[in-house]
């Protein structure tokens, strides 16, 4: 299982093995990590699973669809070029070691 690194806004680091096929959001929620709300349960509806993806991993992510792109305009914290919805990042073997940073708030 690829190891995903979640870094809280305060700088706390959580290393979680997330099964292939699960989303980065699910990995956080199922392990009770704070910083991701995931109000809609992963339907790309709410923008409360916003993360900043470490630049080194950005090229490994599939291109963002227009729905995610639009959803990211309504995040609680500032949208950056590396902003993504973690429910839309499906864990694959190549994402081993992925680093995502969580914003100060999701609401």
């Amino acid at each position: 299982m690829p190891e995903i690194n979640y870094i809280s806004y305060a700088g706390e680091k959580f290393q979680i093995d997330v099964p292939i096929g699960e989303s980065v959001m699910e990995g956080a929620v199922r392990n009770g990590i704070d910083g991701i709300v995931a109000e809609c349960g992963g339907s790309c509806l709410c923008a409360t699973c916003h993360v900043y993806v470490d630049e080194a991993f950005l090229p490994l992510l599939p291109p963002m669809d227009e729905e995610q792109d639009a959803m990211l305009d309504s995040t609680a914290c500032e949208r950056m070029p590396n902003s993504r919805l973690s429910c839309q990042i499906s864990v694959r073997a190549e994402l081993e070691g992925l680093i995502v940073r969580m914003p100060e708030t999701q609401k």
């Binding site: 729905e67 639009a70 305009d73 309504s74």
Partner: peptide, 10 residues
């Protein structure tokens, strides 16, 4: 039309 919906919320 999810983009309409998101625009509508805003």
């Amino acid at each position: 039309r999810p983009l309409d919906h998101l625009a509508a919320r805003r």
